[in-house]
Design a protein around this nucleic acid. Sequence first.
DNA 1: CTGAAAGCGCTAACAG
DNA 2: CTGTTAGCGCTTTCAG
Lengths: 330, 330
Amino acid sequence: MSSNGRSKAPTSQDVARLAGVSQSTVSYVLTGSRPISAATRERVEEAIAKLGYHPNSGARTLRSRRSGVIGLMVPEAESADGVLMVFIGAIAREARRHGYDILLVTAQEGAEGIHRVVRTGVCEALILMELGRYDERVAPVLESGLPFVTIGKPEEFPQGSVVDLDFEMLGRMVVERALEESCDRLLLFGDPGHKRARNDVSRLLVGIEDAAAEAQLEVVLDGGPYATVPERALQVTLPNDRTALFGMSGVRQVLFAMAATGALVDETRLLIALSGADLADMSPLLASVPQLDPRRVQISELAVQELVRLLRTDGAVPRITLVEPRWLEG
Amino acid sequence: MSSNGRSKAPTSQDVARLAGVSQSTVSYVLTGSRPISAATRERVEEAIAKLGYHPNSGARTLRSRRSGVIGLMVPEAESADGVLMVFIGAIAREARRHGYDILLVTAQEGAEGIHRVVRTGVCEALILMELGRYDERVAPVLESGLPFVTIGKPEEFPQGSVVDLDFEMLGRMVVERALEESCDRLLLFGDPGHKRARNDVSRLLVGIEDAAAEAQLEVVLDGGPYATVPERALQVTLPNDRTALFGMSGVRQVLFAMAATGALVDETRLLIALSGADLADMSPLLASVPQLDPRRVQISELAVQELVRLLRTDGAVPRITLVEPRWLEG
DNA sequence: CTGAAAGCGCTAACAG
DNA sequence: CTGTTAGCGCTTTCAG
């Protein structure tokens, strides 16, 4: 009735008419791909504001072959610890800051999904999360020739950039801390030996084993259930010995098991945690636990920035960026 | 060198040439908007397969004004319990099943963000999560005239569809269970009285209060810290009385507090949990806890289906869909 | 049942 | 510094 409001969106033609310039001039004001006099620019911008004009995305994409959309390959949400959402939120925000939107591509879609968003031209670049060692989705990505960044360092990746936590340094930092806190042993829970196949875990172990060898710290790989980790920490401890506990996952479970069997930090045991969303709301328990920040927000932002660099810099060469973990004293 | 592979993507023109038909015929085969003889269709489809043709998204969007993209307004990831990701994953998968892609619009972008994706034509429909009571982002959505679905029932919403859990029924189910398990009281933790302003909580309370009044069950609103909920449950319990505990959030904390002070289920107390990602990996503790499934996947799928209905059915009327909670016996 | 042709709104040559 | 013009690849009339 009164306010149907369904008025057709104004085009650059409308803006040009109102500003008394040619349609291409409007385009040049918008893209900045050629110098425009201050006077003209102002008139155009006024008209744009007055009409509430926004350039049509379809037309722009068709003509320029740039969609302004970055595809984000997300893993299945089995992890369920909320960590994924931290990455996604930070990536989306940073992408917007650079003028890009984020389109979700679920792992479930597989190689076919990648192929589709690439061939249809919906995405002009990709961010890949949690790639498997030999992931079927890598082929279509490489084939597409689109710039891409992986979060999480894979085995080998000559063609795209990589942003990840420096897991080797993480390992060295854990050992260093264990020594500072006068521990004689380091117990790694969550079976890191078996998971050595995972690239992040294997790099962590390299860091740990190097530093531990040097410092004469004994390292125990523990594959047992999380709930009984604290008990086993005692079993490996001789009188007057102290064990540091660390693991890439299951911190919450271990934390609670320790809280249940006594103090988190005592003469015999020291829990070191990799902080994350699964520890939210546990603040009272965490008071005495040294936490390492895996810097997920920084990694996300760097991934976007690196992708933007690949997109904007002509002939930019892919590179690897490793982010240093930080202590988060509580 | 050998496999640069950067060959330009084939167009419908190329397909037409190879199939020996006109370009428009190719289009008709793809869109199905006019009858095509079996013979022709087959030749075209062969050519499509041979060339690995995918229609260009920009051109299609420009011409048809349909982008095949649904904007998903996600809240800031403060909740951090991983629940958000369940919704997003299920929405993305269901959208793909119907031929749509999901574009993220973060809450941070606010009204301006909505305005942008709408005016530029990137999105042809919207799914809104966690709207505030008087959310600034509602205006641009309504103004756009695009079909939309909200997940989570707001105060009032005449123009878009709504999909949500039936919180009133949730309340009735909690009361019913409490009675079946011979409880005399129901303690609601997480200060549901104060949070009555939240639409879901207020509907929960309606359900609870109605059912409780009828059955003579005493209801206690508890706003104290989660960690001491189990103690307070005892304080409100006379000898031989039993208290059921329920809350919309903080279940994990209460669960642990109860585990620490004794059994989860005993003669005096019964914890009823709203299941979720924050309870993952707690299985041993949960064994005796009745869990209510808030059916996030179903809600997500229904939201997409409802949006697709609005998009495809001409003159479709928005509607409200409430999903029944289910018991998840453990 | 199929073809020819127009044009969606924009960018980027080409021409002053 | 600005205008004119030619398409990008598709959908959809209008003609057969």
